[in-house]
Simulated assay, not measured.
Amino acid sequence: MSWQLQDAKNRFSEVVEKALTEGPQHITRRGKPAVVVIAESEYRKAPKPRRSLAEYLLSAPKVDIEIERAKLRLRDVDFDL
Score class of each variant (00 low, 15 high):
Q6H: 09
D7N: 09
A8P: 00
A8C: 00
K9Y: 08
N10I: 04
N10M: 06
N10R: 10
R11V: 00
R11S: 02
R11Y: 04
F12D: 00
V15G: 02
E17A: 08
E17V: 02
E17M: 11
E17T: 07
K18P: 01
A19G: 00
L20Q: 12
T21M: 04
T21H: 08
T21S: 10
G23L: 02
G23Q: 01
G23Y: 03
P24H: 02
H26S: 14
I27C: 01
I27F: 01
T28I: 10
T28Q: 12
T28A: 13
R29H: 09
R29W: 03
R29Q: 10
R30S: 13
R30I: 07
R30V: 04
G31A: 04
G31Q: 02
K32F: 04
P33A: 14
P33I: 07
A34I: 05
V35M: 13
V35Y: 10
V35D: 08
A39P: 00
A39K: 05
E42L: 13
E42C: 06
E42V: 11
Y43P: 00
Y43M: 12
Y43N: 10
Y43V: 07
A46L: 15
P47D: 12
P47S: 13
K48V: 09
P49N: 07
P49K: 09
P49W: 06
P49E: 08
R50K: 13
R50P: 00
R50I: 10
R50N: 15
R51M: 13
R51I: 09
S52K: 03
L53I: 11
L53S: 06
L53N: 06
A54V: 07
A54H: 11
A54M: 12
E55G: 08
Y56H: 13
L57T: 03
L57A: 07
L57V: 04
L57S: 05
L57D: 01
L58F: 04
S59Y: 02
S59P: 03
A60M: 11
A60I: 07
A60P: 01
A60R: 08
K62Q: 05
K62D: 04
K62T: 05
K62R: 13
K62H: 05
D64A: 14
D64K: 15
D64Q: 13
I65T: 05
I65D: 02
I65G: 01
I67S: 10
I67E: 08
E68I: 05
E68W: 07
R69V: 11
A70C: 05
A70T: 10
K71C: 12
K71A: 13
K71N: 09
L72T: 15
L72N: 12
L72S: 15
R73C: 08
R73P: 06
R73F: 09
L74N: 10
L74C: 07
L74H: 12
L74V: 10
R75V: 09
D76K: 15
V77Y: 13
V77F: 11
F79H: 15
L81I: 00
L81Y: 10
